[in-house]
Amino acid sequence: MQGIIRTIRDGSGFDILLLGLALLYLIIFSAFPIIYNIIMSLQTVDMFTLTSFNRPFVGLQNYYDIFSQPVARTIFWNTVKFVVLSIVFQLSIGFGLALFFQQDFPGASYLRGLFLAGWIMPALVVGAIWKWLFAGDFGVINYVLTSLGIADDRIFWLSDPNVALYAVIIANIWLGIPFNMILLSVGLASIPRDVYEAAELDGAGAFERFRSITLPLMRAQLGAVISLGVIFTLQQFDLIAALTQGGPADSSNVAQYWSWQFSFQTYEISLGSAVSVLMIIFVIVVAAVYVRSTRHEHSY
C-alpha cells in the first residue's frame, strides 16, 4: 500500500495514473460512441432497437443505400462547396484582419476583442439574424441591394435553389472569421520583431517580408486553423437548421444535415450513422494533418 502511494506521488505511477485517466476519458467519451456508431452503420437500426446490440447485421448495405440515393451526388458536391468556400474565405478574411490589427494604431486590441462577439453567439441565434437579413420579401440585404441599384429585383436568398447554398456559406463565413482572426493574431504576435527589422534593413519590401517571413513562420498556425476550420465547418448544423433546413429541394443540403435528417426525420438511424462514419473518416484524415502541423510547432 505504502509503495503504491509513493509511486503515485513521485514515481512512474503518477505518469501511468495520468495516462490512464486520459485513456479512460477517451475510451468512454470518444472511442465508445465512435465504435457504437460504426456498428450501427452496419446494422438495421430504428428508434426501438437503439438500446440493444442484438440487431440484424446487414454489412455494407447501408452504405450502398446512401450512395444509390438520387440526392447523394448533390449533397456530396454541396458539402465540398460548403467546406472549401467557407474555409477559403474565413481564412483569407481572417488573416487579412489579423494582419490589419497587427498594425499599431489606437484601440487596435480592443477592436480585435470586439470581433469575438460573433463567435460567442450561438449559431442558432446567428442563423435567426441572418434569416432576417436574407429574407426574400422584406430582408435587409435585398433592401440595400435594390435601393443602391446593385440588384434590379429581389434575390430570394433562401428559397432560390441556385442561391440558397451560397447564402448559408456567407453566413458561415461571417461566423468563422473571428475565430480564424484570433488564432492567426496569436501566431503573428509570436513572430519576433527583429526578424522583420533585419529584413527591412536588407531592403525587403512589405510584400517580400510577408511572403518570406510571415507565411513560412505561420505555417503551423495556418495548418491548425485550416484543419480546425474543416472540422468546425463539417459540424455546422445549427446554421443550416435555422436558415434553409437543407432546402429548397436539397439545394443547400450538406452531409451533416443529411445524416441528421435520416436519423431524426425518417428514423433511418443506420443510414444516418453510415453518413456520419464517412464524415468521421474524412475528419480523421484532416485531424492527422492537424496533429502533424502542431508537431511542427514544437520544432522551433
Partner: peptide, 21 residues
C-alpha cells in the same frame, strides 16, 4: 405567392397575411 413559400412554415406564411402582405 412568394418564392419563400418553399421554405416557410404555415405559421410564418400566415404571418405575412396578418401583416397585410
Amino acid at each position: 405567392a412568394s418564392p419563400d413559400t418553399l421554405i416557410r412554415s404555415q405559421f410564418d406564411s400566415t404571418g405575412t397575411f396578418n401583416a397585410g402582405n
